[in-house]
Structures are given as C-alpha cells and as structure tokens.
Design a protein around this nucleic acid. Structure first.
Length: 493
RNA sequence: GCCGCGUUCGUCUAGGGGCCUAGGACGCCGCCCUUUCACGGCGGUAGCACGGGUUCGAAUCCCGUACGCGGUACCA
C-alpha cells in the first residue's frame, strides 16, 4: 500500500462544489500523499439533465484554492484520460455488451410509466418500494421475458431500451470497508440496477466501476451515501472479471439541525454549503482544511493545528471515525482566527486590499493599511471582517450603536467632548500618547471616570462601543478627520 | 416499510478490559492582564443512549432495545 496508491475525487458537475465534497477530496488527497500515491480528479458528467454550467470550473478553482492540486485530471493530463466521463462513452458501451453477452445483464424496454405501474401494483405496507428484481422482472418487458427474435427486432427498430444488471438472488455480498470493516448485503435486497440509460449514457454505477478499473484506482474513498450501492459495484467488478479496489466509506457531515448538510438545513444556520462561499467569505484555506480534516478524523493525540503537510504525515483512514460529524461553524471560526493571526502583516494587507476592492474602496496606501491590519488582526475572525468591522477606518460612521450610546452618552457628555476637542486642537504633537494624556487630564479636571469621556469619544469616532485602541485609531485617522467626526456626533447624537 | 451504517461533554474528538473518580479542543461561565475592545494566561461547567450478558474487573467484548443517519431512480 505504499507504492501503487491511486485514488480519485469524482464529483459530478451538478452544482457548485459542496463543502462535504471538499472534505471527501481532502481525505483522498491526504491518503494519496501520505502513501506517496496519485490523486486524480475525474468529472462524472453522465447526467445530462442535471449538468450545471460552470460547475466544473468551480470544482477546479475550489480545489486549487484549498491547495489540493491533482496529479491527473481534465486540465492536468495524465495517462488514464480522458477524465470526463462524457468523453468516454464508447468504453462503457463496450463493457455493458460484455456483461450482456455473458448473461450478467439484459435489455429492458419498459417505459417509466410501466415501471411506475409495476411499483404501484406490488406496493404493500410491508414493501413500500418494490424493486425491479428477479421476481418482478419476470412480468416486465425485457430480453429475459421476450423471445430472442422479439428482442432483436425491438432493438433493430430503434425502440428505447436500458441495460440492467442481472442480480442473482440468494447470495451474500461481503466486503471489507477500511473504515467500517466487514459489511455485508444480501442480493435479495438489491435491484436490477440500470447500467446504461436509454440516452446511451451509463449510470454512475457502471461508469464508476469501469473508470476506477481502467484508471487503476486502488482505493475508493467516498461518502457514506454510497455504502448501499457498494455491493452492486462489487458484483460488477466480479462479473467483469476485475479485482475491486479497497473501499472506504466516509462518515457524513451533518447539519446542527440534523440530517446531512444541505443548502436547506444549513444556510439558515449561517453555514454556507458551497466552497465558493468560504472563499468569498474571507476564510483562510489552511483553516478550512484543518477544520474539515478534523470533521471525522483525529490524529489520536491532543494536537489541533495541522497545516496540509502535517495532515499528510498524520493522516490514516484507520483514524477516520464511523459516525457523522456535525458542522460546528464556531470551531471553524476559531481555526480561522488562529491561522489569520499567524500571517504576516504584509500578506494581510494584500488580503485587505482585495476585500476593499470588492467593496469599491480605494485610495489608501500600504502604510495606512498596515496600521489597520495591526490594529484589527487580533480582534477579527476573518480577513473580510477587517472591512466590515473596521469600516470607520475608511469612512465616518453613518450611525451610532444604540446600546453603547444609551449606556455612555449622558447629559454632561457634550461638555466633556467639547473640552477634549479644544485641548486636542491645541496639541503640539498629535500622537496616540499625547491624545491619551490629554483625555486623562480632561477627565481628571472634571472629576469623572476615564470611561465617561473615552466611550463617548469612541462612539463619536467609530460609531461603536468596541474596537481597537482608541488613541491609536485617532492617530491613524488624523486630527482633522477626528475633529470633524466628533463635531458631527455632537450634532447628531 | 425494507436494507445498511452508526451512538463518549451542546459540538469535534481521545479512549481499543484494569493507567478513566473518562483526556484535549470549540462554545459557555468566572478570575487575572487591560484607566477602552480584543489577544493572552488561569480555572470552572458538561458526557460513556438504555437493558441484559461475558469477566475478578467494561466506555472498551457479545446480544437486544431505543434513537439518529444513509439508501431504496433510466441522480450522482
């Protein structure tokens, strides 16, 4: 397991890359690198109806943003391509025919309506969802019930058909999942899965098996939602005469509201489901990766902070847990803070510039932005917060925090502020130290507490009751700006 | 309904028969630092789903129950 590891991340371009998909990709990536193997990206676009424009690009950009470059893929080349299933159609047909020839599959001509009618007919309280299987297939229109001539003539006439896997009842399919150990299913519970759809394209089940074999995939690492169909895949490998890759079914990522994380039950709770939302939300890739890695995996000791390379070294599938993990956005926030604070001011300035640009704010030099970063980095969670919470560095406050104002703005406040203003006006050197000294003097002279003046000044200048050191902020903003803001506040509050 | 998988603090988890009066992290609470917000430091809160076994001994092994989740498509 140390030289020939080849794993793949095989998303289907039916939407923007899901955060759960990113974790699946991550585990594949970590496993591949830990074992000095290859990580492959394969696009599973066999469902024409669900294809979403731009989805493939989104998957690729997201993966690259997260620092997970693949060794082979649609835009990366590789010896086992093409890496888009829509470009491999003839391959699947060929293997479906092999299965047909060997009696492992058969043609079926039933319309969706006829299948639906069959289900209605067979439905009981004991069996609410009848299958197309060894029993029901005998009453349907397929090459098993039709004469050879009839089948041939239907095929020749161009009648629509699908190819279904012929499941033999009475068997048990067992396999050893790397995460769940022995898993077994009875074939009686499996249905005659459609392998080739009437549009001539394969279903996931066939395509995935054919491609994994042809691409020499050693380990299939995917979400638990595939566990139920794994026995069909095992059977397919067996019927095709191939050795099945090792399976590892990952626990699902759950919503705090219950159920698997989906747009519906997550975004209302402030949890974005698309990776692109984390990118645009100002999250650090390292933080997201670290957080995601720990959602279902643990190194077995008390360490919490792992960068990609450290994850690669520590990661094993044996340490992946079996049960679903609830997505805890507070913990992601904590990780993000850790990584953000570990960055140099220079890179943070770049991030801040990008954020400002998105808000249409320009015209600040690097020295100014560096000071903003210095003042803000310890008290925000994401780079984007430096703009949202530090807007007062770029524009005067438009309104004043009600709670803080109610608490701090008293009748004597305007008098104190005016006195402070007058002193500041006279200041020979406008610096944070001098400003603090001045404020102290005013406060002392009036026999009131420090906060009696400091807080109102803060509200007047920044609009809020909290934030970075007020005097540093005042120095950065400049004398004129500060004077104007206080005067405005005196009128407006 | 049927099939499968799972179940340790609110959440992520460590734990693989005695080291566990169950450890860490997030969150929350308190204290310290700070004449402001934070950062930081220290401390606290809280958990082995339930019932039977096996064993000298069970969070750890077995069985059952409950609950949760997934699957049950010509979607992936």
């Amino acid at each position: 397991m140390s030289t020939n590891v080849r794993v793949r991340f095989a998303p289907s371009p039916t939407g923007m890359l899901h955060i759960g998909g990113l974790r699946t990709a991550l585990y594949n990536y970590l496993f591949a690198h830990h074992n000095k193997g290859k990580f492959i990206l394969r696009i599973e676009d066999t469902d024409q109806n669900r294809y979403v424009e731009g989805a493939e690009e989104d998957i690729i950009t997201s993966l690259k943003w997260a620092g997970m470059m693949y060794d082979e893929g649609p835009d990366a080349g590789g010896g086992a391509g093409p890496y888009r299933q829509s470009e491999r159609s003839t391959l699947y047909k060929q293997y479906a025919e092999q299965l047909l020839k060997e009696g492992r599959a058969y043609y079926a001509f039933d319309t969706p309506e006829e299948i639906e009618a069959m289900r209605e007919r067979l439905k009981t309280s004991e069996n609410t969802n009848p299958k197309y299987d060894a029993v029901s297939r005998q009453h349907m229109t397929n090459s098993l019930t039709l004469s050879q001539d009839e089948t041939t003539s239907r095929l020749d006439s161009g009648a629509p058909y699908v190819i279904r896997l012929k499941i033999e009842p009475g068997e048990t399919v067992q396999f050893n999942d790397l995460i769940r150990e022995a898993v077994s299913f009875r074939t009686d519970d499996l249905d005659d899965q459609v392998l080739m759809k009437s549009d001539g394209l394969p279903t996931y089940h066939l395509a995935n098996v054919v491609d994994d074999h042809l691409m020499d995939i050693s380990h299939v690492i995917r979400g638990e939602e595939w566990l139920s169909s794994a026995p069909k895949h095992i059977l397919l490998y067996r019927y095709l005469g191939w050795e099945a890759p090792v399976m590892a079914h990952l626990p699902l990522i759950m919503s705090p509201a219950g159920g698997k994380l989906s747009k519906r039950n997550a975004e209302a709770l402030g949890i974005p489901v698309n990776v692109r939302d984390y990118i645009s939300g100002g999250y650090e890739p390292d933080a997201l990766i670290n957080f995601l890695a720990f959602l279902g995996w643990s190194p077995g000791d008390d360490r919490e902070l792992f960068r990609m390379q450290e994850l690669i070294e520590a990661f094993t599938l044996e340490d992946v847990s079996k049960s679903g993990a609830v997505f805890n956005i507070d913990k992601l926030t904590w990780y993000n803070e850790q990584y953000m604070r570990s960055r140099t001011n220079d890179t943070l300035v770049e991030a801040l510039k990008a954020e400002l640009l998105r808000s249409g704010i320009t015209g600040y030099n690097d020295a100014y932005l560096d000071s903003v970063v210095e003042l803000m980095k310890e008290r925000v969670s994401k780079t984007s917060d430096m703009v949202t919470q530090g807007m007062f560095f770029f524009a005067p406050p438009t309104d004043y925090d009600e709670k803080a104002t109610a608490k701090a703005w008293k009748t004597q406040t305007p008098l104190l502020l005016e006195e402070f203003l007058a002193e500041v006006e006279q200041l020979p050197a406008y610096t944070a130290v001098a400003l603090k000294e001045t404020l102290s003097q005013v406060v002392e002279r009036n026999g009131v507490g420090f906060g009696k003046l400091m807080l109102p000044a803060r509200i007047a200048i920044t609009g809020t009751g909290g934030g970075p050191d007020l005097f540093e902020t005042m120095e950065l903003l400049g004398k004129d700006e500060v004077m104007n803001r206080v005067k405005t506040a005196l009128k407006k509050v």
